[in-house]
């Protein structure tokens, strides 16, 4: 699964940056076309949900999605043929 921020919905509040145990969300640097500074993702493949959702058949962790007041965070299935990065940190 791939972690995505819907740029049409994100309002740049950065609340996602304070909840992720992996610190995947980082405050963004430059405004997008709507003038919103959307957070940047730092190696999102580390996200527990990206790795394990398919295996467990339910949302794991999900803290960022829950706190995001603008319903901007979701996980998408990889496209067919898209390489899946597997990141396991020890």
């Amino acid at each position: 699964m791939r972690l995505v921020i819907d740029e049409r919905r994100c309002k740049g509040c950065n609340l996602c940056t304070i909840v992720c145990p992996y610190k995947i969300f980082r405050q963004g640097a430059k405004p997008n076309a709507r003038g919103i500074v959307v957070p940047e993702l730092d190696r999102p493949e580390r996200c527990a949900n990206c790795r394990l959702q398919a295996l467990y058949g339910r949302t794991l962790c999900g803290m960022c999605q829950m706190i995001c007041p603008d319903q901007a965070i979701s996980w998408k299935d990889e496209e067919i043929g898209e390489p899946t990065k597997v990141a396991i940190e020890f």
């Binding site: 309002k11 740049g12 509040c13 950065n14 609340l15 919103i36 999605q65 829950m66 706190i67 995001c68 007041p69 603008d70 319903q71």
Partner: peptide, 10 residues
């Protein structure tokens, strides 16, 4: 932006 209400809806 950042209003807590959206979180409570979730």
């Amino acid at each position: 932006a950042g209003c807590g209400n959206g979180t409570i809806i979730n």
